[in-house]
Simulated assay, not measured.
Amino acid sequence: MLSKSLLIPTIILSSLSTYTFADNEKNFYIGADYYGVTNTDSNRVAEQELGPGYAINLGYSYKLAERWSIDGELEYANYGSTDKLNLDGDNPSAYGLDGSSLSLNLKPTYRLKSNGLYLSALFGFGHYNFNSSYYDYTNFLGAYTNDKGVGYSVGFETGYEFDQVIASLGYKQAYVNLNDIELSALYLGLAYRF
Rank of each mutant, 00 (worst) to 15 (best):
I8S: 04
I11Y: 09
I12R: 12
S14C: 13
S15Y: 15
S15K: 10
Y19M: 00
T20K: 08
A22E: 13
K26E: 11
N27M: 10
A32G: 15
D33Q: 02
Y34S: 06
V37G: 10
T38H: 04
T38S: 12
T38G: 07
N39A: 12
D41I: 07
E47Y: 03
Q48E: 15
G51I: 06
G51T: 08
P52H: 06
Y54Q: 12
N57K: 15
G59C: 08
G59E: 06
Y60H: 13
S61D: 07
Y62R: 06
L64E: 02
E66P: 01
E66F: 08
W68E: 02
S69F: 04
S69R: 14
I70P: 04
I70D: 01
I70F: 02
G72K: 09
E73P: 02
N78Y: 10
Y79S: 05
Y79A: 01
T82C: 10
T82A: 13
D83S: 13
K84P: 01
L85E: 11
N86Y: 11
G89K: 05
G89C: 03
P92G: 08
A94C: 05
G96V: 02
L97V: 14
G99W: 03
S100R: 11
S101V: 03
L102A: 09
S103D: 07
S103Q: 08
L104G: 11
L104I: 14
L104Q: 00
T109I: 00
R111I: 03
L112V: 13
L117F: 15
L119A: 13
S120Q: 15
L122C: 10
F123A: 11
F123H: 07
F123N: 07
G124T: 05
F125N: 06
G126R: 04
F130W: 14
F140G: 05
L141K: 11
G142T: 05
A143R: 08
N146R: 12
D147N: 10
K148C: 03
G149S: 09
S153K: 04
F156S: 14
T158Q: 09
T158F: 12
E161Y: 02
E161L: 08
Q164M: 03
I166T: 14
A167F: 14
S168I: 07
S168Q: 15
L169Q: 00
Y171I: 04
K172V: 10
Q173K: 14
A174M: 09
V176R: 04
A185Q: 13
L186M: 14
L186V: 11
L188R: 06
A191W: 03
F194L: 11
F194P: 06
